[in-house]
Design a protein around this nucleic acid. Structure first.
Ligand code: SF4
Ligand code: SF4
Lengths: 149, 149
DNA sequence: TTTAAATAATACCTGGAGGTATCATTTATG
DNA sequence: CATAAATGATACCTCCAGGTATTATTTAAA
């Protein structure tokens, strides 16, 4: 699945919030739509707030709102904001670095894969996602995971 | 890093053993070259044996040997043999399946990435790896991780 | 000014991946 | 046949991602 759950959650949340960049989304609202375990969701939202990609408004009628333009938030930004510092290493076998001139059969093949991943993550912004309306898809999909608060 | 450690270990082990398909490799030999934590390595070797990709010879001078032709062992085979049942899901957000006609902006973009991963895993066999001599690279690289038995 | 609805902080619980430790079994060889 | 060198089986340890629980703080609005 490539991303860890927490990162996936962050991607879902941010994509959902991209629906309406002006709106203040409460944790409750997000929970109702994404069905991410409530208390964990709350925790992640504060983490995302601290990252600066969104900001929070406390008190009654509070919530969260994007703090940048959609076009200024890439998927990679979100991944980092979620605290996922995983680097998409280029060695297929997971070695830190290859000290050898002669590369194995996988080296270049895999480099292409890694680059295509990074390319998607860097070049795709929330703006692009909004156009095709992901969040709707997301919220409906998540109804599969029926959980109680 | 895409693969879990255990899977990485399996890939390293099998690639190393592909160097000489006739040879019986002892756990000690593999340890000396790959520096995978010894007892864990032992455990993984028995798992790989049970999977059928390699077989073990017990007793003095025993060890492990590939039980198929190099061309018959793909990277995906190895991953499965290592007990890694992860399916390379096509939904970027990690949803099980998309019940919607209208796909989000990431759907096709990501499908391409996933397919390229699966393509490498399915189409690359140990035969191909042997040609370029990965194992040497692997063994030298692993000396970085100096551990004691 | 009190209350209720929201977020913040903090500490704890849990399962499973990765790693250890110990003992049992197999077998070549002197 | 005794020994040493190998693998097999099993049980345990440890850390951390993911998830819970509790209490504190902020603020709109009745
Ligand atoms: S040559 Fe192969 S083993 Fe060495 S760094 Fe590249 S992918 Fe990894
Ligand atoms: S359309 Fe988007 S959210 Fe829906 S399954 Fe495809 S990638 Fe996932």
């Amino acid at each position: 699945m490539i991303f860890c759950k927490t990162t996936e959650y962050a991607l879902r949340i941010m994509s959902y919030m991209a629906m309406n960049e002006k709106k203040l989304y409460s944790a409750n609202n997000i929970y109702e739509n994404l069905r991410i375990p409530f208390r964990y969701l709350r925790k992640q939202l504060t983490i995302l707030s601290k990252s600066g990609l969104i900001f929070s408004v406390q008190g009654k009628n509070g919530g969260y709102r994007l703090s940048k333009n959609l076009s200024e938030i890439s998927l990679l930004d979100i991944i980092h904001a979620a605290g996922d510092n995983q680097i998409y290493n280029e060695c297929f076998f997971g070695f830190q670095s290859c000290a050898f001139k002669k590369k194995c059969a996988l080296h270049y093949k895999w480099e292409v894969v890694i680059e295509s991943i990074n390319n998607v993550l860097i070049s795709t912004t929330l703006e692009e996602l909004k156009k095709t309306g992901t969040p709707d898809c997301i919220s409906k999909n998540s109804l599969i995971f029926t959980k109680n608060k």
